[in-house]
């Protein structure tokens, strides 16, 4: 267990040593800031209009949480689509390129611990990124009443979604010694899972239901409305388990091929 933490710490140190970390963090803060301020001003505009028309306001049932925070959380999946492959691309690819994987695999470590340490490091980074965004609900809370239960549910959903994305990235990184290929592969897989949703529109009802279920992004919808559906949670956790399992197999395969 101790070795998991050692590996995780090294990954974090190495991540912050490279400029990539700062670029990703800056992009994240910038994009989330844009989305938030956009929907914040949008809401201000709508509520001013609705103030003049109380009847319509009563019908539409707009709250600060649903009008400001929901769109922000909904856009998270798109931002993550681009950023998580960059977070995960170096985890195994760099070790393979440098050859240090050969050294690590001759150390008294279990493959599972190695994998867990690496995954934990990007998970912690992601938690840090999420923590940065807590400022938005707080800002809204200063001016209006925030439904904190909905916010908590949304954060849980976003966390699970991000962890599924990261596990896809870890898996892709375990396949290749080329970081660009690792990032591209992860991006393509994630993108495909987004497109499944669109493809569902043009196929029969049965297949459409399956495609919708497989589409990663859709599993965030309930959570950001304050509904935690166990099917969503199980789906996202299953993605984690599947990808990490496949990454483990790929490490094993690497030993055989070397």
């Amino acid at each position: 267990m101790c070795s998991v933490w050692l590996i995780c710490k090294r990954e974090l140190a190495s991540f912050f040593f490279s400029p990539v970390a700062y670029v990703v963090l800056a992009a994240w803060a910038f994009l989330m800031g844009i989305f938030f301020s956009g929907s914040f001003f949008n809401y201000a505009l709508i509520s001013m209009q609705l103030a003049r028309n109380p009847q319509a306001a009563a019908q539409m049932n707009i709250t600060p949480t649903s009008a400001v925070l929901e769109p922000v959380f909904a856009s998270v999946s798109v931002v993550l689509l681009f950023l998580t492959p960059i977070l995960t691309m170096r985890l195994f690819s760099e070790e393979k390129k440098l050859g240090t994987i050969e050294l690590l695999l001759t150390y008294p470590l279990r493959d599972g611990h190695l994998l867990a340490g690496k995954f934990l490091s990007v998970l912690l980074l992601y938690l840090m990124m999420l923590a940065l965004t807590l400022i938005y609900p707080v800002i809204v809370g200063l001016h209006a009443t925030v439904e904190w239960g909905v916010v908590a549910s949304a954060y849980l959903g976003v966390f699970l979604l991000g962890s599924a994305f990261l596990s896809v990235g870890v898996m892709a990184s375990s396949w290749t010694s080329n970081q660009i290929i690792a990032a591209t592969a992860a991006f393509m897989i994630l993108l495909l899972s987004f497109i499944l949703d669109f493809m569902a529109a043009s196929v029969g009802a049965d297949l459409a239901a399956v495609l919708r279920h497989l589409s990663i992004g859709l599993h965030l919808r309930n959570a950001i409305r304050g509904v935690i559906d166990t099917r969503d949670v199980i789906y996202l956790l299953n993605i984690n388990i599947l990808c990490l399992f496949l990454a483990m197999r790929s490490l094993e395969y690497y030993r055989w091929r070397a």
């Binding site: 090294r10 440098l98 240090t100 050294l103 001759t106």
Partner: peptide, 14 residues
């Protein structure tokens, strides 16, 4: 075992 691989891989950022 102490092992030194042929390519002498090292973490360059440490």
């Amino acid at each position: 075992i102490g092992y030194m691989p042929e390519s002498n891989p090292l973490y360059l950022d440490m």
